[in-house]
Amino acid sequence: MTLKAILAATTLGTMATGAVAQNFDGVSFGVGVTNFGLSLEGEYAVSPQVGVRGMVMGGLSFDDEFDIDDATVDGEADLGGVALLADFYPLANAWRLSGGLFFSTSEVTGTVTDGLTTYDGEINFKNEVAPLLSTGFSTEVASGWSVSGDIGVIVSSLEVSSDDNTGTVQADIDELNADLEDVPVVPFIGVAVSYSY
């Protein structure tokens, strides 16, 4: 290899290393837990007061009885979702306000019993893509390591559905959904540990 080729390779290698370091500057990755399951998170600090964040949640599944208004669902809940958020730190400290979109992958399936009416059904978010609003914190606890937390709401009610098209079942579903619309939000809670590059 000629001296010219060695110098060119060294220069390109140095530029590539600098580009990689620059690309990861202000980026953090984390793991956590939310009321929709375990979470993987990535965040990019646009400025000291503004960040963008993505979360993938899931892995939480359990069998139980769930009360929906006056009805009981005996079935399985599979919880999960994806969130894309913008974080604003108004005081340039640990406190933040966040807003964005939640894409639900959650589903509850089972047997619905409401009085004398029983049928197989599902409960999902009425809006599979819904606004997510939260407040929380992100604070550094060691060099590069941070702990964060969020509490907020997903702006969507829940909705019952069934493949059973009999009049009695559909009337019961309509009544349940009318009651569920009175609660237009679903709680969101999460904590995470992350590492910043």
Rank of each mutant, 00 (worst) to 15 (best):
I123E: 04
R96T: 05
N177P: 12
Y119F: 15
G80D: 11
A178Q: 14
T72C: 00
L40R: 03
L79M: 13
K126R: 08
D70W: 03
N23T: 14
S47L: 09
A142C: 12
S157P: 12
D87F: 03
G32A: 07
D87S: 04
L101T: 03
A8Q: 12
F24C: 02
V169C: 13
D120R: 08
A5D: 09
Y119S: 03
T10V: 15
G37P: 10
W145C: 10
G121W: 02
G37T: 12
G152W: 00
E122Y: 02
A171G: 14
A9D: 09
L180K: 01
D172T: 15
G110P: 00
V56L: 15
V147M: 06
L101P: 05
T135K: 01
E140C: 11
L60Q: 11
A94E: 15
T113L: 02
S161A: 08
L40N: 01
G58V: 07
A19Y: 05
A71Y: 04
I6Q: 08
S148I: 11
S134R: 04
V191E: 03
T72V: 10
T118D: 07
Y197W: 13
D67N: 11
I189L: 15
G121S: 08
N124S: 11
S134C: 11
N124V: 09
A94L: 11
D163I: 03
T11E: 15
Y44H: 14
A142V: 14
S157R: 07
G99Q: 03
D172W: 00
D64G: 08
G152H: 03
A83G: 08
Y44A: 10
G37H: 03
E128Y: 09
S148E: 09
G18N: 13
